[in-house]
Amino acid sequence: MASESSDEGGNGYEPKILVFACNWCSYAGADLAGVSRLQMPANCRIIRVMCSGRVRPEFVVTALSKGLDGVLVLGCHPGECHYSEGNYFTRRRGLLLKNLLQFVGIEPERFQVRWVSASEGAKFADTVEQVTEQIRALGPNRPQGGMHSTEPGDR
């Protein structure tokens, strides 16, 4: 992986992860994690969307190509979508996109989809923790053109 041969990896590296969370389940789950004061790494930045089905794959591709270290899409569990069907499209799209990204050599950990319900504050925290650690282990994302995460402390 990139970090092994990289001088930018190492101890100070903090990945930056974009999270899409649906308003009704996952964003609420994230709120619950907060209300429950569940501590987690501070690498994720949430964009709220009404439904995970709103997340067009172009967002994921663009985010990774712009050098963000990972993208996590969170939606309601299948069968529990506020809009009844939106996350089924997320699921199909996610399956295909994950494979496609992997096919062009992008580590599968960098794009993940998970289902987090409004009552799963703990699952939200665990997911953030897991995904952050997985991506931290990969080291900085190096999209085409050699962009990379900034050095720690440089922000």
């Binding site: 794959p57 663009t62 190509s65 496609l100 999209p143 085409q144 053109g145 962009m147």
Partner: peptide, 17 residues
């Protein structure tokens, strides 16, 4: 920009899926 070529091709691929 050459560094956006990948975006171009991946998005195109997604649209044609």
């Amino acid at each position: 920009l050459p560094r956006e070529n990948e975006i171009y091709h991946l998005i195109r691929a997604v649209h044609l899926a």
